[in-house]
């Protein structure tokens, strides 16, 4: 009995907000004005849910860091962790493929291993010593979140590109102590006014 998990983990995956696509490098790809508004709305939404959040983990890419900076204002005192494994990339060749985005094999090989490592690090049932339910926020990127969803639900990983996520949206995974996984929401952005909703 001591070796059985007892608690539930709730993982809220947030896609970063809209950012400047024209930046030369990652540090130049900062949030747009609308992106900052989206992050404010997501932060307000998370606060309104009234949950006791345990940790805020974010990708080390600039757009995720800026999104985390804004959201964390609404969750004062929350522990923050930056993670390179959560950086955007090409997790696995999608099926069906699309014409306007074709990374080479090396990209899939490198990014795929890294994103899978991120999945194994963050998406699992509670440890045996966890006694209470936890609520963890992970701020990262669309490809990473979609891949996580496919893997968590044991759907074919190649189907990750069949889903779309809005900027600042919330994807909620619940993992029971039994290992059962429930996708409660996928890409929820209903809390944003329609004119504030973007995908690219």
């Amino acid at each position: 009995e001591n070796k059985k998990p007892k608690a539930t983990r709730h993982i809220l995956l947030i896609r970063h907000s809209q950012y400047n696509l024209n930046g030369h490098s990652d540090k130049d790809r900062t949030l747009t004005g609308l992106g900052q508004e989206q992050a404010e709305l997501t932060g307000q939404r998370l606060a309104t849910l009234g949950l006791k959040y345990d940790v805020l983990i974010h990708s080390s890419m600039t757009r995720a860091v800026e999104t985390a900076n804004i959201i964390s204002k609404y969750i004062p005192g929350i522990q923050r962790v930056s993670c390179d494994l959560l950086r955007e990339g090409a997790p696995i060749e999608p099926d069906p493929p699309i014409n306007h985005w074709k990374p080479d094999s090396v990209q899939y090989y490198e990014d795929g291993a890294r994103i899978e490592a991120a999945f194994r690090r963050y998406i699992h049932r509670a440890e045996t010593n966890q006694l209470e339910d936890t609520y963890e926020i992970i701020i990262c990127h669309a490809n990473v979140i979609r891949y996580f969803v496919c893997r968590a639900l044991q759907f074919p990983s190649e189907g990750w590109l069949r889903m779309g996520l809005n900027h600042g949206s919330i994807t909620w995974l619940t993992i029971r102590p039994s290992g059962r996984v429930i996708l409660r929401t996928l890409g929820d952005s209903g809390f944003m006014p329609p004119e504030k909703v973007t995908r690219s």
């Binding site: 998990p5 699992h124 290992g179």
Partner: peptide, 18 residues
Amino acid sequence: EPKKGGWDTNWDRREPAF
């Protein structure tokens, strides 16, 4: 072994029985 197409209960390598 999970049946083909079935749910793998040890998907996160944390199933106590394993």
